[in-house]
């Protein structure tokens, strides 16, 4: 008997709470609802402002962690740096990883891959794949 299969959790870190939530909704919608995937959001400073909250990131990562790994996408500057420093500090669940991917496109790739049961490496590859799609 194998253990029940769990999906990689996804965390979206944006300077804006509305951006994080909207991208989560979009990615989930494009993944056909993706009921099996936990998508956590950490948007803004926690008091409604634009910025990054380490506390929200840690909370979101813990919320989506089921032991299969946590794939984190971040939008800009302090979002990226805060995730990196939390990782160095060991404050995120084991198996957490910051994906090198564009925020929105990467989120869609990651949620779709995770909902299909992909492991963390494959989720990361799916998100990074978005860099290869040229628009011009």
């Amino acid at each position: 008997m194998s253990a029940p299969r769990t999906c990689v959790g996804i965390v979206l870190v944006s300077h804006s709470a509305r951006v994080a939530q909207s991208v989560a909704d979009l990615a989930r919608g494009l993944a056909g609802g993706a009921p099996s995937v936990r998508v956590g959001v950490a948007g803004g400073t926690g008091d409604g402002g634009l910025g990054t909250s380490a506390e929200l990131i840690v909370a979101a990562a813990r919320e989506v962690d089921t032991g299969a790994g946590v794939a984190i996408l971040a939008d800009l500057g302090s979002s990226v740096l805060t995730v990196k420093s939390l990782l160095v500090d060991g404050e995120l669940p084991d198996g957490s990883r910051l994906l090198d991917a564009p925020f929105l496109e990467g989120a869609v790739g990651a949620v779709v891959a995770a909902s299909a049961g992909a492991r963390l490496d494959a989720v990361e590859a799916a998100a990074a794949e978005a860099y290869k799609y040229r628009k011009g």
């Binding site: 910025g51 990054t52 909250s53 506390e55 500057g77 302090s78 740096l81 805060t82 420093s85 500090d89």
Partner: peptide
Amino acid sequence: GRTLISTVGGASGPLYGTLLR
């Protein structure tokens, strides 16, 4: 350093936090 990372809210938080930590 840990306090700066968790309270600043901008890029200077993780940067100064990392410096001190």
